[in-house]
Simulated scan of single mutants.
Amino acid sequence: MSGLEAALSEASSPSWTQRVRAGRHLASFADVPEAAEVLVRLLLDVEDTAVTRQTAEALARVGTVAAVRLIALAVAEADDNRADWMGTGLYDAIVGPDGVPDVAAACGKLAGDPEEAVRRGAADIAAWAHGTGC
């Protein structure tokens, strides 16, 4: 079983720690459709906000347009509590000791996305990133 296949399988685990591990691992595969679908599901994890927070942080650390797009999609679907935890994960990545790529720049590229939910979510993320001094 490949690392991608193992992480996809782990994402369905009843264990929140395994789902967190899957989110961290899958973040680097944000541009792979099978992984993207699972990552959005992890961002919206209904059982544990740690999964939401740490998956958002991992995607923000990747910082590609594809990775930030997944956060934007999830933000557009999330209730206020889940959105807050995604914002916290984003904050953790931006102000962490290693910093992250320019998330605001990725959001700028997503402002023209054909999907309205992505544009709306990207606007929220850009506001969060701006609020952290990014």
Rank of each mutant, 00 (worst) to 15 (best):
T55I: 08
A56Y: 03
A56H: 01
A56F: 04
A56R: 00
E57D: 05
A58D: 00
A58Q: 02
A58G: 03
A58T: 03
A58V: 02
L59F: 06
L59I: 03
A60G: 01
A60R: 00
R61Y: 00
R61L: 08
R61H: 02
V62S: 00
V62R: 11
V62F: 01
G63F: 00
G63V: 01
G63D: 01
G63N: 01
G63S: 04
G63C: 02
T64F: 11
T64K: 03
T64N: 08
V65D: 11
V65P: 01
A66G: 08
A66P: 08
A67E: 02
V68K: 01
V68R: 01
R69H: 07
R69T: 09
L70P: 04
L70K: 06
I71T: 10
I71S: 04
I71C: 09
I71P: 03
I71V: 14
A72Q: 02
L73M: 13
A74D: 07
A74S: 10
A74W: 02
A74T: 08
V75C: 04
A76S: 15
A76F: 05
E77R: 14
E77P: 01
E77S: 11
E77D: 11
A78D: 07
A78G: 10
D79T: 11
D79K: 10
D79C: 09
D79V: 11
D79A: 11
D80K: 11
D80M: 10
D80L: 12
D80E: 14
N81S: 14
N81A: 15
N81C: 12
N81I: 14
R82W: 05
R82D: 04
R82N: 07
R82M: 12
A83E: 13
A83M: 08
A83S: 13
D84R: 15
D84I: 07
W85D: 10
M86I: 09
T88C: 10
T88K: 13
G89E: 03
G89A: 04
G89L: 05
Y91M: 14
Y91I: 12
D92T: 10
D92I: 10
D92N: 14
D92C: 12
D92E: 15
I94F: 05
I94H: 01
I94T: 05
V95F: 08
V95H: 09
V95L: 12
G96Q: 11
G96K: 11
V100A: 15
V100E: 08
V100H: 09
P101R: 15
P101C: 08
P101S: 15
D102P: 12
V103M: 09
V103N: 02
V103A: 10
A104K: 14
A104V: 10
A105G: 09
A105M: 12
A105Y: 12
A106M: 06
A106N: 05
A106W: 02
A106Y: 01
C107T: 06
G108R: 13
G108C: 10
G108Q: 13
G108A: 12
G108L: 12
G108V: 03
G108F: 10
K109P: 00
K109Q: 14
K109A: 14
K109L: 14
L110G: 02
L110C: 06
L110F: 04
A111T: 04
A111N: 05
A111Y: 06
G112Y: 01
G112L: 08
P114A: 06
P114W: 02
P114S: 08
